[in-house]
Each structure stands twice: as C-alpha cells, then as structure tokens.
C-alpha cells in the first residue's frame, strides 16, 4: 500500500519546511508561556476587558485559571490552528498539487506503482506530518511548563486537548488533499480545499465575536474542537473521534478519486 522510496524522498525533501514551522511554533509557545502568571495574568485580563470582542474572535474569551486553560485559550484557540493550516496547505502543494501541476507526476506513474499507492503514500506523509507537528507543539508546551511552572499543567486534560487538535487538523488536511484529488485543476483544487479551511476558521471567529453571529458555529467543524472545555477536563473525546473518522473517510475518498480520474500530464 505504501511506496517506500517516495515516502523517503518526501521526508528528505520536506524536513526543512517542517523545521521552519517547528521554529515558529517554538517561538510562539515560549513567548506565550512566559506570559502566564499563576496569580492570574492581570494585565491580560485588563486588555481583554478593554477589547473583549477582539479577544473573543481569536478564541481568547476565557483566560481561565489553570495553566491548561491558559494554553487552550491563547495557543490552541487560534495559533495552533492557523500555523499548522499554513503548513498543511504548503505540504499538500508539495506532495500532490505540485507534481500534478508541474507534470512530474508522469514519472511517478511511469513505474510499476499503482496510483492508489502513490496517493496513499502522500496522504500518509501529510497525516504523519500533522501528528508530528501536534506532538512537537504539545510536547514543547509540556516541557516548557515543567521547567517554568513545575506541577501546574494538568496532564490528562492537556493530552485530550492535543489529541483533539490532531483530529481537527487531520480533517483540515483531508479537505486540502481531497480538493486536489477531486478537481481537474490541481491549483484550483488546493485553493478550494485550503479556502474552505480558512472559511471555517473565519466562521468560527465570527461566531465567537458576538451573539448575533453565534449560529455560524454550526457551519464549521471547528466547533467540535472545544479547547476551553477540554482544558477544563469537561469536553468529550467523541467529537475528536468523529473529526478523525471524517478525515480518514475524506483521505480515502481523495485517493479513490485520484485512482479513477483523468490526469493532464
């Protein structure tokens, strides 16, 4: 099912890109973590009081009291979604859209590897990269917390928060991947898939900005990722499971379409 030489090539080729994102995540995570004050960040609370709508739009409505809630609010609410989404779009381009657009897919198909195997390998690399990114981001936060605020981070809620994030990002990845597989023009496919993800994020931001727009939350799968509740230890893991299953179904559908469609090479 998996094309090992292709997987090896993608690992080698994309490590610089993944390293850049790891760097950016490190920067944000460490800066935000230094802002945590166990005595409740008063300055942040004041800022929030001064411009509540703006804070709410970025998913920072409730700073919470525990470190897990703080992280959920300031990192998992927006940054840890937006940055990986950029990574996902860039990766989908490099893994699939680029090969189709550039015509180099012809070489991959001029080998005894079925299309299914090639597409599945690329999907696997994308899913793997997402999991590695979440593992890195979560691991980094846990490590920094352990050094800076020993004993403050509640590990089970934090773990559930990260697993749910991985499920949501997998779904966003499958939308980009599926878009490229499904549309005849790979650039348009990526624009459609990536655009849909960005739209979902905007809908969520709008729905949080005021009661008038609250109904918009039912139009975006991001609602299934309730970072604040997960950090409080209240959220269920069912939404995450549903997100992940939906992602797997979309990846499989993408691979299936890719296997049957005409390729302009």
């Amino acid at each position: 099912m998996i094309c090992v030489p292709l997987l090896k090539r993608e690992i080698k080729r994309n490590i610089p890109l993944l390293a850049i994102f790891a760097g950016i995540l490190t920067l944000y995570a460490s800066v935000i973590l230094t802002m945590y004050d166990p005595e409740l960040g008063e300055s942040l609370a004041m800022m929030k009081d001064a411009m509540p709508q703006l804070f709410a739009a970025f998913g920072m409505s409730d700073p919470g009291t525990t470190l897990a809630e703080f992280l959920a609010n300031y990192l998992y609410g927006f940054l840890f979604l937006a940055l990986p989404l950029v990574m996902i779009i860039l990766l989908t381009n490099r893994l699939l859209a680029g090969y189709l657009d550039h015509g180099t897919m012809a070489w991959l198909l001029a080998t005894p590897r079925p299309r299914r195997q090639i597409a599945a390998s690329q999907a696997l690399f994308l899913i793997g990269s997402i999991l590695v990114a979440v593992l890195y981001a979560g691991g980094l936060c846990a490590l920094l917390s352990a050094f800076m605020y020993p004993g403050e981070l509640a590990s089970l809620p934090f773990l559930r928060l990260n697993l749910s994030l991985a499920a949501l990002l997998s779904l966003l990845g499958s939308l980009c991947f599926g878009g490229v597989c499904a549309l005849p023009d790979s650039r348009q496919g990526l624009a459609a898939g990536g655009g849909l993800c960005v739209l979902f994020m905007l809908l969520q931001m709008l729905s949080q900005a005021g009661e008038k727009w609250e109904w918009l939350q039912y139009l975006t799968p991001l609602t299934a990722f309730d970072s604040a509740a997960l950090a409080r230890g209240e959220g269920s893991m069912w939404p995450a499971l549903v997100l992940f299953m939906a992602a797997l179904a979309l990846y499989a559908a993408g691979v299936g379409i890719f296997t049957r469609r005409d390729l302009c090479l």
């Binding site: 015509g103 012809a106 070489w107 198909l109 001029a110 080998t111 005894p112 590897r113 079925p114 299309r115 195997q117 090479l265």
Partner: peptide, 11 residues
C-alpha cells in the same frame, strides 16, 4: 501499473 513494469517512458 502492471504494464509499467515492462515499459520505459519518455514524456
């Protein structure tokens, strides 16, 4: 894919 095992291609 089965055919490609026996084929050389130049685009």
């Amino acid at each position: 894919a089965a055919i490609q095992a026996h084929t050389g291609y130049l685009p």
